[in-house]
Write a protein that binds this DNA or RNA. Structure first.
Lengths: 126, 126
DNA sequence: CTGGATCCTGCCCGATACTG
DNA sequence: CAGTATCGGGCAGGATCCAG
């Protein structure tokens, strides 16, 4: 075994670690529910139950799971009001807002090419 | 049973159909492999086996599956050269290129906030 | 109302083998 | 080389129940 690192230097290791982290984040973010949640939040502050209504078709479990994930990554901020019944509010952080901008781009793209895609599908299915 | 439509007019039906189509497209596109494939393609033209090497970690099956899906939606163009062994090349269409631009934004975002996210995770995990 | 924990089902996806 | 079909294990995700 070698004491020194392989191809050389800890910079390579750092780069590899950053890459794997980027991949991880990419996997977290590139999922339907996360994107829809962020898009629904926009610049508003919403409660859990409100989000449940906003994000069409999301289950209780998926919403909770993704919100925790987004909170962990620092994309949403979770504030608990010590009242009964409990009131918990979610809002996008600055990184979250930045991400939302790119998601807006994705939505724009979807609507712009809706027609192209529909006809392309029809042709393909024949 | 009613002969007339519910809330009225076929425009509502059109809107609902467009929405469901948009959701469908969103689900197709908001998936890790599709995004990575599009990003890898960029403005190049690549063969199946080349894509297999480019997109780190993708399986034969997932690559074929996603390529068919992208082709169906008209985001990639598939050209078969009638030689042996067969040579099949993939390239982004104009809608595909447009989508790639927004994905680039996503990648930029990822790298810009890599640090934020890492520290946020660390704090959260405590 | 928020959000865990648990069970259970269906499907995703990897491995493999087979055609052109 | 490119692509499809099949099988099987594992995990995603819905339903439900409970706790604070």
């Amino acid at each position: 075994m070698v004491t020194k690192q392989f191809s050389g230097s800890s910079e390579d290791a750092d780069l590899r670690r950053a890459d794997s982290l980027a991949r991880e984040i990419f996997s977290d973010v590139a999922n339907k529910w996360a994107l829809l949640i962020i898009e629904s939040l926009g610049e508003r502050t919403l409660r859990f139950s409100e989000l449940r209504n906003e994000v069409e078709g999301v289950s209780h479990k998926m919403l909770a799971q993704n919100l925790r994930m987004l909170e962990r990554n620092g994309l949403v901020e979770r504030t608990v009001h010590p009242v009964v019944p409990p009131r918990v509010e979610y809002t996008l952080t600055e990184p979250g807002q930045a991400l939302r901008v790119t998601i807006d781009g994705l939505c724009d793209w979807t609507h712009r090419y809706l027609g192209h895609i529909e006809t392309s599908r029809h042709r393909f299915d024949a």
